[in-house]
Amino acid sequence: MLAFILRRVMQSVVVLFVMSLIVFSMINLVGDPVDMLVNPESLPEEIDRVRRDFGLDQPAYVQYWKFLTGALAGDLGNSFIFGRPALALMVERFPATLELATSALIIAITVGLPLGIYAGLRPNGWGTRIIMGGSVLGISVPTFWLGLMMIIVFSVILGWLPVSGRGETAVFLGIESSLFTLDGLKHLILPATNLALFKIAMVIRLTRAGTEEVMAQDYIKFARAKGLSSKRIVRAHLLPNILIPIITVLGIEFGTLIAFATVTESIFAWPGLGKLVIDAIVNLDRPIVVAYLLFVVALFLVLNLVVDIIYAVLDPRVRLQGEGG
């Protein structure tokens, strides 16, 4: 297990390095950040000074070298706009995004799993048709449009929930989160549901396909031949088998939840990473964009590793490569 983890960490470092090179080259091709930093009516000398101050007058490879040596020391550069370290800004914003993505994931599982199992057990039922129809809708309707509709219906017309922003937070077990206050929950519910919708549909489909596949297996027939109740068969034989692929996919999807959160955060003015990076893109705030992209890559790498480990723990047949035996 340890050898496996070590090897994966080394692979991850290589991937991160290559990604940093790609991201850095690409971003140097778009726009001129200095235009955003100075008053359009500034004198040429003034513009040159700003360019020098930010090191933007240097050749790209020098800039990259500076970035790389800084990154190895834990410094991803300063935001052009905020004038503060990009990493610190991201660390500040990350809890809000994590909270949103985690809530969305929990919603997706608690809603999607039972519906998917129901649909898988009764492939021809009426309920199944409604569930599957709903899930097609969930996948095909754009997130931003649904988000706006949700705001119009629940906030503007019904007035039940706040329109935007993050609510009060409270500290519980050393974690500061808006999950622990009523106001926080009220603010969270719309954006989390909005972010979850796509995933609910995905969980339903995955679960249904898994359920149909597992229920056709001989071991289910043998379990029924033992006289087990349907409840027991679902809990002891169906669930453990469908959870393996579902957890694998969801582990990876957690990364896309954080990445997709950019749209939801923009609609609901949720002060998370996504909003930070969208603003950074608009303002050509290169250090933030680079730091964010590298962060997302690192996140996917870590999630992949964690998923592989969970997979090995859940499925007794799986032995990780690099592990003896």
């Binding site: 297996q217 001989d218 071991y219 027939k221 043998f222 379990a223 031949a225 002891a236 034989h237 453990p240 088998n241 393996i244 859940l314 499925d315 007794p316 047949r317």
Partner: peptide
Amino acid sequence: FQDPTTSLNPVQ
């Protein structure tokens, strides 16, 4: 049943 390799649940 016929096939002993598939009659038992692999993860229990």
